[in-house]
Amino acid sequence: MNLTLNDEQKRIQTLAREFAEREVKPGAIERDETSTYDVGLFNKLGKLGLIGLPYPTTVGGQGMGYLEYALAVEEISKVDASLGISYSVATSLYGGTIFNSSASEEVKKKFMAPVLSGEHLGGFGLTEHGAGSDAAGQKTIAKQDGDFYILNGSKCFNTNGPLADYYVIYALTDPSVGTKSMTCFAVERSTPGVSIGHIENKMGIRSAQVSEILLDNVRVPAANMLAQPGEGFKLAMKTLDCGRIGVAAQGLGIAEGAFEIARKYMMEREQFGKPISKQQYLAFKMAELYTKIQGAKLLVYGAALAHDAGTRFTVDAAMAKMTATDVAMEVTTEAVQMLGGNGYMREYEVERMMRDAKITQIYEGTNEIQRLVISGTLFR
């Protein structure tokens, strides 16, 4: 496996890094404090061509791959994991559901191009209050009515929910057979009956907007169906595999961002007459963390390459997501400790990164679910 970046991948990496440092980082603390989202930053991601990286030009993308996309998520998440997950959801969960669906090319372009351009946000409606890790516990119903389907139900923990103009919504056509009737629809926010429920007040990723999506007799054209009844569960699982690469890249970026803050601080902070980086215990701890970050990076890039090669990547994505997010939690916790009292203060940013890191171990499949995925392949 060759993990040497080519010139185009290096260009994407540099483009995302410079944008993150120049435009995303300056307001990250304030956006976290106020739980506000800057839609303008998402718009600029689209203008730079970063949102559509892994999709062909026929649907409004850039015709590249998941490695380029992972590089961009990583760089954005080094300074603002909230924008990182908003970007990831719009690209891999919303965009991935539609692109991997059985919808016509016309429908794919209609619903993907406005989001990939950065002009509109997209959301992903799978999770419900009674259906988290157990996606089969869906209660949202889609009932056919001629050339339309009527949707009733609700979705929770929907990243981009309050701001999105487009959603992908998973539902059952026959609750008595469960996932054997699961389907999925592209739904416009402007459709009568679509409304925003509770907006979450979160521990971390506070700038990202997360809410309930309420569906009350929402009338959706049958042409907007993205998966035939019974095919929706398979589409959701494939989409989550893709999404886990994005969350893995997010975790990697958080870890790298916190590590760099700690590294610079340790070179400047003096105690007992010398920089604390000269204290062997702390230096060795940083060496261990750096090694874990590099290991996580290999898994993240490897999963993205497996996706782009067209090989089965479910386990690769699970290993990358589990490892990179666990490393993110460890590195950010240690970074707070390395900075001592300053690490606990918001102006030094690592406490925000620690809060942000925690959710990466939970969403898009808890790390316990990732262990189930991985272990399930070991004893066949």
Rank of each mutant, 00 (worst) to 15 (best):
R189P: 06
I362R: 13
M354W: 10
Y66P: 00
G146H: 10
V39Y: 01
T91N: 07
L15T: 14
L214K: 15
E18R: 14
V177K: 13
Q209V: 02
E364L: 05
F42L: 11
S102N: 13
R380S: 10
A186C: 09
E200C: 05
V336T: 12
E288V: 13
P26L: 00
S77V: 00
K274H: 11
S211P: 11
I362N: 09
F124W: 13
L93A: 13
K155A: 04
V336K: 08
E256R: 06
D80L: 03
T36A: 08
P192Y: 09
Q337H: 13
P229K: 08
I261A: 01
K25E: 12
L3A: 12
R380W: 02
T4W: 01
Q228P: 00
N43H: 14
T191N: 10
E23W: 05
R22T: 12
M338P: 06
G122F: 02
S82I: 05
D174T: 03
E105M: 15
T159L: 02
R312V: 10
S211Q: 07
D316H: 13
N160E: 06
V315L: 05
T311L: 10
L339H: 03
F124R: 07
A103K: 06
G161N: 05
A135S: 10
K202T: 13
E33S: 13
M329I: 08
D7I: 07
G65V: 03
T333M: 07
S176C: 04
Y66V: 01
K358P: 00
M329D: 11
E200Q: 14
G60I: 00
E21K: 14
V24M: 04
Q279P: 05
R31T: 03
A236N: 11
V168I: 12
I141M: 10
M237I: 08
F272W: 14
Q138H: 04
T179P: 09
R371I: 02
M237D: 09
K143R: 11
G49P: 10
P54H: 07
A186Q: 07
E74A: 00
G341I: 06
